[in-house]
Nucleic acid binder design. Structure first.
Length: 825
RNA sequence: GCCGGAGUGGCGGAACUGGUAGACGCGCUGGACUCAAAAUCCAGUGAGGCUUGCCUCGUGAGGGUUCAAAUCCCUCCUCCGGCACCA
């Protein structure tokens, strides 16, 4: 049979040798700088993947991230865009210091050795980066701009220093930002975080809380990420209500989102850190041990048994003038609201729990719609809506309305004021570690806190440092670093020894890629051209941290007139994890697959192809060796098909777009080609579904294998289309085969094939015949057939007659070119 | 507890706006080639039934809307992710 055109090594065709051809093209791309983009003209497209942290080597997760980005980069280039596709290294951070402690290597040496390896691995994977734009965040050429931004922000009032309880990780021995504490544990090492009172530097991200919130809602980002950021910013609207104290002219301000329940407030609770708690302890020292205990409990994150103590003091409920007790309890946080609450046990689960424990009165003020609730019938707090009861002049009003009416009333009475609160806190950037950007601040006995003048930047990180993992910040012990002169008065002074959070580095690296400025962090014109990033791709673990900080940075830079945009990343794709044996790949589970091993065995194209094919990008991907072999088999099939049948390469395709082919078969092939182009283009561009794009390419190849006339010019062009469509996914094999059939160009400089609309559908179609919605028959008809003709035709069919025999036809529903449904009794 | 997302063959996953459920791949079965195997090529493959061509069932469970539901609505179950004394 003619189908068996190539079997095994009997015929003299060259084998598919992935190692050889991949290395050949990687060398070519490097030498020719094929993917560099020097111009900043024309339609731009900025595709960015999150840069890797400089630990030992590239893992499968990186390969997934970068393979997805590379498809888009190639596709957009072939579509005629001026594509920016850069890469670099996130090089500051704690692991470098830990390696220094464990192995005695200098963080710098460790980092640069790793970078060399990572670079080699990325090149071996054949990603189409513009390597000339590489950014390494631990280069002083880079981090000097962190310092420069710090000073600019400082001048603008976006940086401040304060002594406050901060999240301290005892293992990493440094302060962490709120965003870096996950369920009370350190995001990096998992140790329980404790609160420590230290002087810290903060970026005023809260200035942008409203803008960050408003814009996120409009963005083309995954819903999950948007929701996480919205929750993190945590805007709530409520009221501040002032409670007068009995026997004192002091007032206690509380914040509540349920002003409608004010008549149900039966006691007040202060945080143990509240200033009044402090005062009460001084007045009545017998309370001190209890309050100190509660303070300690609060310093450990996580929920503890609710405890409290009556202060002996009383306040007046401003709504009903009732005398209510003032308590101090461990469940009220100082950081949120005013640090004090009005407790409404009937309608708040926490207050309810506390009131039951300490036998405090519980008064229902919102009656649930279904029940006439009495105090003793309440087994849990009712937090829903209902009609007001026990609330004076507001009785009978629905609680939603009461919320507004009572707010207005309280404003009039001077009891309260409407207020908005956010959960978002300012970004603490001080880290008591060595391997990071030195904070450009000098402490002078004369002048106080002085920022380093711009001309003295960068404040270089000294290299002669001993990292022991003990004591305070390593920089504190470097005398030559600490001791300096005050830039203002010239007297002896001391440097700040904390370094910046490494998330500062990653908050603007995408700007540095787009242009490296000389006297500025970047060239303004180039930035205007390239920004914002059109498509950003990375892991969902950065949903809050990096993605929120970068948004803040963009807005802050806009406000110091360096940027014109409001948001850095137009579209975002968060890819899923790679799973093996039901668990995330990790060293501790021993289920790690090393990409290099896979490349050695199958080649980079197979690895990339498999990762793209196995699942849609946002879903977790199940690693299966058999699946990898399937993709390798497919590539070998492509290889044999093209080697055996490839004709001379043409710069312009013509036959496949001609309306009339030589015969039916040829028309069908043209339709197949056009449909495949349409499918692959849409899957890449509109849906990011690389798995279905590759599936349709596989279908296409299967079809071509069975096509009888492999010598026809239409078939030759079909092979050429196949290679062009395949190129973004598996560039090496596509480029090699193209060259072998006479292509002189880099495929990235070839135009992506267009499809012709008139050739997407055959003239004859298979119509589904249903009776009462059940498939009963198929009918081959001309696609333009009229409804009446079909109805007549379909009733003649034997299968149809059989099913409608003796039954009444109620109606017929015709969906053009799809189906006809006959409805019978 | 609150907020997201998802449940489809032996497995990974298709089915985009309601219109042939299971594309494509893996695995499995049969055939061709071979002394044989591997590789390759071709064909089959949701379950059950029998008269082998068709019938019945089938997208986590139950109900509903519709000529027609994996897809829309309601109730419930399970899994994954995020947040969590945030007043």
């Amino acid at each position: 049979m003619s189908l068996n055109f190539y079997s095994g090594d009997k015929m003299n065709f060259p084998e598919y040798n992935a190692q050889e051809i991949e290395k050949k093209w990687q060398k070519h791309w490097e030498k020719e700088k094929t993917f560099a983009c020097s111009a900043f003209r024309g339609k731009k497209y900025y595709i960015l993947e999150m840069f890797p942290y400089t630990s030992g080597s590239i893992h499968i997760g990186h390969v997934r991230n970068y393979s997805i980005g590379d498809v888009v980069a190639h596709y957009k280039r072939m579509k005629g865009f001026n594509v920016l596709h850069p890469i670099g290294f996130d090089a500051f951070g704690l692991p470098a210091e830990n390696a220094a402690i464990d192995k005695g290597t200098h963080p710098k040496d460790w980092t640069y050795t790793n970078i060399k390896n990572l670079r080699r691995q990325l090149k071996r994977l054949g990603f189409s980066y513009d390597w000339d734009r590489e950014v390494i965040t631990c280069d002083k050429d880079y981090y000097r701009w962190n310092q420069w931004f710090f000073i600019k922000f400082y001048q603008k009032g976006l940086v401040y220093q304060k002594k406050a309880p901060a999240n301290w990780c005892p293992t990493c021995r440094t302060i962490l930002a709120n965003e870096q504490v996950i369920e009370g544990n350190c995001y990096r090492c998992g140790s329980p975080v404790v609160q420590k009172n230290l002087k810290q530097w903060f970026f005023k991200i809260t200035n942008y809380a409203d803008e960050l919130l408003e814009e996120i809602e409009k963005m083309d980002w995954p819903a999950a990420v948007k929701k996480m950021q919205i929750n993190w910013i945590g805007k709530s609207k409520g009221m501040q209500i002032n409670f007068e104290m009995v026997d004192s002219k002091d007032k206690i301000a509380v914040y509540t989102t349920r002003p409608d329940t004010v008549f149900g407030a039966t006691y007040l609770v202060l945080s143990p850190f509240h200033s009044l708690s402090e005062k009460i302890m001084e007045d009545d020292p017998s309370l001190k041990p209890e309050v100190e205990m509660m303070r300690k409990e609060q310093l450990i994150k996580g929920e503890v048994e609710k405890e409290g103590i009556f202060t002996g003091l009383w306040a007046v409920n401003p709504a009903n003038r009732e005398k209510i007790p003032i308590w101090i309890a461990n469940y009220v946080l100082m950081e949120y609201g005013t640090g004090a609450i009005m407790a409404v046990p009937a309608h708040d689960v926490r207050d309810f729990e506390f009131a039951v424990k300490y036998n405090l009165p519980i008064r229902v003020v919102v009656s649930p719609p279904e029940a006439g609730s009495k105090v003793d019938s309440l087994k849990e707090a009712y937090t829903g809506e209902g009609k007001m009861v026990n609330s004076g002049q507001f009785n009978g009003i629905p609680s939603q309305q009461a919320r507004e009416k009572m707010s207005e009333w309280m404003v009039l009475e001077g009891i309260g004021t409407p207020q908005v609160h956010y959960k978002l806190r300012d970004w603490c950037i001080s880290r008591q570690r060595y391997w990071g950007t030195p904070i450009p601040i000098i402490y002078c006995d004369n002048c106080g806190v002085v920022s380093v003048p711009e001309k003295d930047l960068p404040v270089e990180l000294p290299s002669d440092v001993r990292i022991t993992g003990k004591g305070g910040s390593p920089l504190e012990k470097v005398r030559s670093f600490v001791e300096c002169t005050c830039p203002r008065c010239g007297k002896k002074a001391m440097r700040e020894t904390d370094t910046m959070d490494t998330f500062v580095d990653s908050s603007w690296y995408f700007l540095r890629y787009a242009s490296k400025g000389n006297n500025l962090p970047f060239d303004i014109d180039r930035i205007d051209y390239w920004m914002p990033v059109d498509q950003y791709i990375g892991g969902i673990e950065h949903a809050i941290l990096h993605l929120l900080y970068s948004r803040f940075f963009t807005k802050a830079l806009r406000d110091i007139n360096l940027l014109k945009i409001n948001e850095p990343f137009t579209r975002l794709l968060t890819q899923g994890m790679v799973i093996k044996d039901g668990a995330k790949m990790s060293k501790s589970k021993g289920n790690v697959v090393d990409p290099e091993d896979i490349i050695k065995e199958y080649g980079a194209d197979t690895l990339r192809g498999f990762i793209l094919f196995a699942a849609p990008p946002e879903i977790d991907l199940d690693w299966k060796k058999e699946g990898l072999e399937g993709v390798n088999r497919f590539l070998k099939r492509v290889w044999r098909l093209v080697i055996a049948n490839g004709k001379s390469w043409k710069d312009k395709l013509e036959y496949i777009y001609e309306e009339e082919g030589k015969n039916e078969k040829e028309n069908e092939l043209k339709i197949m080609v056009n449909k495949t182009i349409e499918k692959v283009s849409q899957d890449i561009e509109q849906r990011f579904r690389f798995n279905t794009a590759l599936a349709s390419l596989m279908e296409f190849v299967n079809y071509l294998y069975l096509y009888p006339e492999k010598k026809s010019p239409v078939f030759g062009e079909s092979l050429q289309v196949l290679l062009l469509l395949l190129y973004p996914f598996t560039p090496h094999i596509a480029q090699e085969l193209a060259e072998r059939i006479g292509c002189k160009k880099d495929l990235c400089n070839c135009r992506w094939p267009e499809y012709k609309r008139s050739l997407l559908k055959s003239k004859k179609i298979t119509l589904i015949v249903q009776i009462n919605g059940k498939l009963r028959d198929r009918l081959t008809v001309f696609s333009k057939i009229k409804k009446e003709d079909i109805e007549r035709e379909v009733l003649k069919r034997e299968k149809v007659k059989k099913h409608i025999q003796g039954k009444n036809i109620k109606k017929m529903i015709y969906v053009p070119e799809k189906l006809i449904n006959i409805v019978v009794d």
